[in-house]
Design a binder for these strands. Structure first.
Lengths: 206, 206
DNA sequence: TAGATTGTTAATCGATTAACAATC
DNA sequence: TAGATTGTTAATCGATTAACAATC
């Protein structure tokens, strides 16, 4: 094991670094310093160096970081170098919107199945995927080796869906419903509730 | 000023408390202890008490907190007791989905205008709102006293939209585009990028 | 009164930042 | 070589948790 215990804060910054590095690569920039990264991402350069140093020595003293190399390394750390299949439950407006994100997303990380419990939704087409009945979740998780789940159902349904996901063997959940989900300790959950975000912003406004 | 300097972490927890308290109220529960809250929200009771104590003495020793009273107090703190108008820019799939959140959202916090720069979108109906050309943003911000903005445009457009929002006088931004926005220090920004969330979850999965 | 629970201080824990030797 | 920048240790800063007197 190379990793001691990395804090969640560190892990959450890695995708931000990754995104900006990919942007630099698109601009044909081959080398970048922690100072430049810090300037553009509004972060402390020491923090960036420290974050990266948890996982190895990726830079060169006096030079900086090779953009392409660092991209590859961060992808390895985040396990974005291998296929990661995602299930989405809740084929409403938000679910449909997110399923279109597939295109922008890293090609290794993909929504491969969409579920709903609402009779009328089932069988409808969302992008290239057909909405399946939630009952098929366990079967599809096994068949497609689905590792993560996105919850875009109403708050009242969210806990039930989370339970079903966990039972089916899903290992991580991105939850858009405004509830705190009860899941086993080893299943990470990210909450992405829009109302909560807006309400906390309200404090600073006016 | 009652408030010294409250950390963002505290402010971000308040909407979570609020939501659960509203849930308790719906269940006709009138009193709750920090211990019970902690159990249900997966938080430390001392933290909850401390968070609330920054703003006043809302509980009763030996008893706990009055649910209805605490709801009102938190709403006051977050300024959710007054009207807060929001503009959304980017009438794509995600923007459309979010505008429907209007219904679930606190009635005081409302999306009151939707903008896009794409010719074909302008004039189309999203819920009860007509999509307006982005050029009208400054005018509408003034007319409707809009305080916050939601950005749901592609990454390439996001900075430009943020600049336009700031120029128009918007005081807080919820950004769904995968970029770090450059805005004046006094304008709070929340990033709610789905890809970033999923990528950081990937680390913990499998 | 005895039991419960707050508000708050003190202790702990963890994360961020500064500083600098190593080195390209 | 001189200048730049990393990796890493030490210092600082801030946030969380424990503990407990006050009190309902």
């Amino acid at each position: 094991m190379k990793t001691p215990k990395i804090s969640e804060a560190v892990i959450r910054r890695l995708p931000v670094y990754l995104r900006y590095l990919q942007h630099l690569r698109d601009l044909n920039i081959t080398t970048v310093s922690s100072h430049e990264l810090g300037q553009n991402l509004d972060m402390n350069p020491a923090q960036i160096r420290k974050d990266l140093a948890y996982f190895g020595e990726f830079g060169r003293k006096g030079i900086g970081y090779d953009v392409q190399y660092l991209i590859e390394k961060i992808k390895q750390i985040l396990k974005l170098d291998r296929r990661l299949n995602v299930a989405l439950v809740g084929a409403g407006n938000l679910g449909t919107a997110l399923s279109n994100y597939n295109r922008y997303t890293n090609e290794k990380l993909k929504i491969v199945a969409i579920f709903d419990s609402f009779e009328e939704k089932i069988g409808t087409q969302v992008g290239t995927l057909e909405v399946l009945p939630i009952e098929l979740l366990p079967k599809m998780v096994k068949e497609l080796d689905i590792k993560m789940g996105i919850i875009t159902v109403p708050a009242t349904e969210a806990q039930k869906v989370a339970d079903q996901m966990v039972d089916a063997g899903i290992k991580g959940i991105l939850n858009f419903a405004p509830v705190i989900l009860k899941v086993p300790l080893d299943i990470p959950v990210r909450n992405a509730d829009v109302t909560t975000e807006l309400e906390s912003l309200a404090y600073y406004v006016d």
